[in-house]
Amino acid sequence: MIDQMTQKPFEVRFSEGTAGFVRLPVAQLNEVCRVLDEKGFRYWVSESQYSMNGGPEWTSIQFSHSVDPRAVQSALDRAN
């Protein structure tokens, strides 16, 4: 799945001991959440939305510590 803002695949960010998260355009929130719901990942959408210089809005999704960020990355990579 391609991030419409960066034109690159979505990147699930994480580091040792932290839960994963992904930044995404608000316009793609529904389609990303649909993929996450289908796979049963536990996640939360931030209530904050950001925009710079009048550009498109983005937000973030935070995953539970119990979710393997690599599995989320794999699911997003496979989704169309």
Partner: peptide, 9 residues
């Protein structure tokens, strides 16, 4: 489990 403090909570 590692405790979660998600933004909505």
């Amino acid at each position: 489990e590692r405790i979660d403090i998600p933004e909505p909570y």
